[in-house]
């Protein structure tokens, strides 16, 4: 580094140099970075095992410089359960999209949460199936057009969008649930804080920690990255409100 300069920001060593394949504006890139920054800041690279899903983030292991297992579609919670039971002292997370966590893998998600499996869910909810080409997700908003709901989601036919953060916060052994977004810089900073809290609670063995990210998909929402941020503010957040749904009680000092 040049003399007189102070390094104040750089790529974390927990991210590889591989160029990400994600579309411009996609929150996957942001979330990967935030999570890997937390892993580095907490000095947990040697003690972290990730589980990646099927979906756009199927290649997440290309970018995260940690040990990773790639799970079958929907089974990340079961895979993470297996890893965590063998290594109860390591940091384990499952990184999943809405089709993975809230459709094909609902049973695995619900039961892992009910058991209070001591790992962290990072749930990327963008209300659409990105990788398979923009089909309807369990979290697609009412009236939202997708390739399998071309006239808009009809609740009478397919029900209402699933509110996973609200659902899992009801389980007694789930410790911490927060819904965050990355649609503004301020919200992205809050998202990173939430990831850090989740990892800290996990290391304290308090139970399941669950971060839902109100995410975007400019490509399949057929809009620009900037427009996708507006869509989140105007349509997604009114239905999927941000905030903490559950948190361990703070011990009095």
């Amino acid at each position: 580094m040049k003399e007189g300069y102070e390094l104040i920001y750089q790529r974390p060593k927990t991210l590889t140099d591989t160029r990400m394949h994600y579309c411009p504006g996609c929150f996957h890139s942001t979330m990967h970075k935030l999570m890997m920054e937390v892993v580095e800041e907490m000095d947990l690279q040697e003690n972290t095992i990730g589980v990646c899903p099927v979906g756009c983030s199927v290649f997440a292991y290309e970018y995260m410089n940690i040990d990773v297992q790639e799970a079958a579609h929907g089974r990340a919670a079961a895979v993470a359960t297996g890893i965590k039971r063998i290594h109860p002292d390591k940091l384990v997370f499952s990184y999943q999209g809405d089709g993975d966590l809230a459709a094909i893998g609902t049973a695995e998600t619900i039961h892992a949460c009910n058991r209070g499996e001591n790992f962290t869910f990072i749930f990327i909810n963008n209300g659409i199936y990105g990788m398979t080409g923009g089909q309807m997700a369990p979290t697609t908003l009412v009236g939202q057009k997708t390739s399998t709901s071309p006239y808009g989601r009809e609740p009478a036919k397919v029900g209402l969008p699933l509110k996973m953060a609200e659902i899992v916060s009801r389980f007694g052994r789930v410790a911490y649930v927060e819904r965050v977004s990355c649609n503004t810089a301020a919200n992205a900073r809050k998202a990173k804080k939430a990831v850090r809290k989740a990892f800290e609670y996990q290391l304290q063995k308090l139970g399941t920690t669950f971060i839902e990210v109100a995410s975007n998909c400019p490509s399949q929402w057929k809009c620009t990255p900037e427009e996708s941020l507006d869509w989140i503010k105007d349509h997604v957040l009114p239905y999927f409100p941000l905030g903490v749904f559950k948190e361990p009680e703070k011990k009095e000092k």
Binding site: V51, Q69, A71, A72, R75, A78, V79, A80, T81, G82, I83, K84, R85, I86, E108
Partner: peptide
């Protein structure tokens, strides 16, 4: 899939 995780 728990086998997969734990075995892996």
């Amino acid at each position: 899939n728990m086998m997969y995780g734990a075995g892996g």
